[in-house]
């Protein structure tokens, strides 16, 4: 499964590189004051394009692999449809953005996203995700016990 996620992530990033080439001829301008990066984050950064691609591939592998693991763990106990619901709720609240944000700080990697995460975002992740997961798990258990799927 891990090898598959690596292949998929590499393919996805390669496709993204090719398609982004259709939109702009500039490869990287994050060290200039006229760049979009400077306007959105208010600081410049000296980083090579290859590093960004490698970081993106690592993030994609991490996301795809972790979600696949969650799916398999849940599908051993629950029906597949509820696993999809739970995972889509998790995705909707951008959990992995939060995790990767603190991982980049912990591992001292260059930050290529926003500087901070707001408190409302933290509340969403620590309150809404557990409630929704718990509700869908309870619902699925109840439906399985009533044999609604048969």
């Amino acid at each position: 499964m891990f090898v598959l996620t690596v292949f998929i992530s590499i393919y996805y990033v390669l496709v993204a590189v090719i398609i982004s080439g259709l939109f702009t001829p500039v490869i990287i301008n994050w060290s200039e004051n006229t760049s979009y990066f400077y306007f959105s984050l208010n600081y410049t950064m000296n980083i090579s394009f290859a590093k960004i691609i490698i970081l993106t591939i690592i993030k994609k592998v991490f996301t795809f692999y972790l979600f696949s693991c969650i799916f398999f763990c849940l599908s051993l106990k629950l029906k597949h449809i509820f696993c999809y619901f739970i995972i889509i709720f998790l995705l909707a609240i951008n959990t992995f953005r939060y995790i990767t944000f603190y991982l980049t700080i912990f591992l001292n990697l260059p930050k290529i996203e926003q500087k901070y995460i707001s408190t409302s975002y933290t509340i969403l992740i620590f309150i809404i995700i557990p409630i929704i997961c718990l509700l869908s798990i309870l619902l699925s258990l109840k439906l399985i016990k009533r044999k609604d799927f048969l």
Binding site: Y12, F23, T24, F37, F67, Y84, E113
Partner: peptide, 28 residues
């Protein structure tokens, strides 16, 4: 605002609801 580059587009695939709601479920 400003001049966009390929790196901006590449970094934009790390986050966003469009990615999370469409690409990750399809890949899964």
């Amino acid at each position: 605002q400003g001049i966009s580059c390929m790196a901006d587009y590449i970094s934009s695939i790390n986050h966003g609801y469009f990615l999370d709601m469409v690409i990750v479920p399809i890949t899964l």
